Amino acid sequence: MQKLTRIIILSIALLMISGCSYFGVYKRDLPQGNLVTQGMVEQLRPGMSRRQVVDLMGSPLLEAPFDASQWDYVYRLDEAYGDVEQRRVTLTFSGGRVVDIEREGDFSKAPPLGDERGIGPDSEATSADQPTPLDNVTPDRP
């Protein structure tokens, strides 16, 4: 009986710790916020209207709650096994027009947008030999 109890306790203990891994858990890159590229920032000019900014950059991630004259576009990439990269563009408006553009972060290189395979499981149906749904679409003619 005592031997059976030891075997059961040992089995339960092995089962409990088998879910833990010595090598750590899987991590992935975590991008958050507005994607801000150097090309977008280079197109910003003082005197642009709010509508022109929204057309170029999209909606801001942050608007000052008590003063709507400041918009912040923030992009943050928390790399799984690396550093945290953050880019920030702060636009200040006066009379509905951009008067100041502040940049923070490294805009010289494009942020990584994922792996080459894309999102989702691999599928042989999307190989180059088989047509995709867009192959049969004819463009609109003027």
Rank of each mutant, 00 (worst) to 15 (best):
K109Q: 07
S69C: 06
G105T: 10
D83S: 03
D55Y: 10
S127R: 15
P60N: 01
L56Q: 06
P46I: 15
P112V: 15
P133L: 15
Q86S: 12
P111R: 00
P60Y: 05
D78C: 06
E79V: 13
E124R: 14
L61E: 03
R88K: 08
R76E: 01
P46G: 07
S94D: 13
R50K: 14
P112Y: 14
E42Q: 10
F93G: 00
E79K: 13
P112T: 13
L56S: 11
D100G: 06
G82R: 09
V74R: 01
Q52D: 04
R76C: 09
L134S: 13
P65I: 13
G114T: 11
F107S: 02
E104N: 15
V84W: 01
T92C: 01
L113Y: 09
L113W: 06
F107T: 05
P131M: 08
D115F: 09
A68Y: 03
S69I: 07
Y75A: 03
V53N: 00
I119P: 02
L61A: 09
G120A: 04
T90K: 03
T126R: 15
F66A: 14
M57V: 11
E116N: 13
Q70N: 09
L113G: 08
Q43E: 01
S59M: 06
G47F: 11
P133M: 12
V89E: 02
D122F: 14
G58W: 07
A110K: 13
S108M: 05
A110L: 04
F93V: 10
E85S: 07
F66V: 14
K109E: 03
V53E: 00
V54P: 01
R50C: 04
E79G: 06
D72W: 10
E124T: 12
T132E: 02
S69D: 02
V84H: 00
R50Q: 10
Y73G: 00
Q130N: 13
V84A: 01
M57C: 02
E124V: 15
G96E: 11
L56V: 12
D67Y: 04
M48G: 01
D72E: 02
I119M: 05
G118D: 06
L134N: 08
S94I: 09
L44C: 07
E79F: 14
S127G: 15
E63K: 15
F107L: 00
D55M: 12
A125E: 02
P112L: 04
V89F: 01
Y81A: 04
S49P: 04
G105D: 05
L44F: 09
P65M: 02
P46M: 08
L61H: 08
D100I: 14
S59V: 11
G105E: 02
A80V: 09
P46Q: 04
A80I: 07
T90E: 03
Q86D: 08
L134D: 05
G114M: 01
Q43D: 06
E85A: 02
F93R: 10
P60I: 11
S127V: 14
A110R: 09
R87I: 05
R103S: 07
V98Y: 01
L44K: 04
L77K: 03
L91T: 01
